[in-house]
Amino acid sequence: MKVSLFVTCLSDNIYPKVTEAMARLLARLGVEVSFPPGQTCCGQPAYNSGYWKQARESALTLLDAFEDSDFVISPSGSCTGMIHHYSKLFENEPEQLERTARLQSKSYEFTQFLVNVLGVTDLGAVFPRKVTYHPSCHGSRILGVKEEPMRLMKDVRGLELVPLPFAEDCCGFGGTFAVKMADISGAMVTEKAAHVLETEAEVLVGLDMACLMNIAGNLRFRGEKVRVMHLAELLYEGVKGA
């Protein structure tokens, strides 16, 4: 069975350690992964801004790259969620639509794959820190990833999970929204970061680097030292040290 990494453009170019951690965790579980190099971006920035012809160009790289994969695993609920919008993007192209349906049926966000496909929640990780969790909107609302990360964190030895106030509120990223509506987005991320600080957690963890880049960006801007990590990084650090 061919398990492929859908690295996402953000993790590929800015946060390579996230996908690396994900790949190493999978190797420890006995999953051999491949990296089809033709993939670029899911197309979400263009799709959400209304530029569907342009989104199509980059969506096609994913359809091509994962044509013969059995499982496609990404470290982002938002990018995996975008694949489900391809039904709309390609609605007038029967051939692409068929490939789209195939890609949708084999695509998983990282924690979905661990918990729902492999059936594993305890990776043997140890992480004795106070942690708070931001559930990203697209992962939790479009993909329905809610319980999976909770179960994984519950099985990490020493991890103290502190609830984030207003956790389900968007961090204000929203792709081009953060640029086009900079002040509204700024107000949203400022409030989100304040909620993170309120928890007095040492670590903020999440499943989507776009949101985490946004929140971390504001925390650093304020000079705050809260560590911001993808759950894959946290788990990998936890098993490495165990």
Binding site: Y15, P16, G217, N218, R220, F221
Partner: peptide
């Protein structure tokens, strides 16, 4: 401008994931 009014931006790392892949 808009982004950095409220945040800092991470810089690009030395190597992208795809550059590291052969070793990894």
């Amino acid at each position: 401008k808009g982004w950095n009014t409220y945040r800092v931006t991470p810089s690009l790392p030395k190597e992208a994931f795809r550059d590291q892949w052969p070793t990894l």
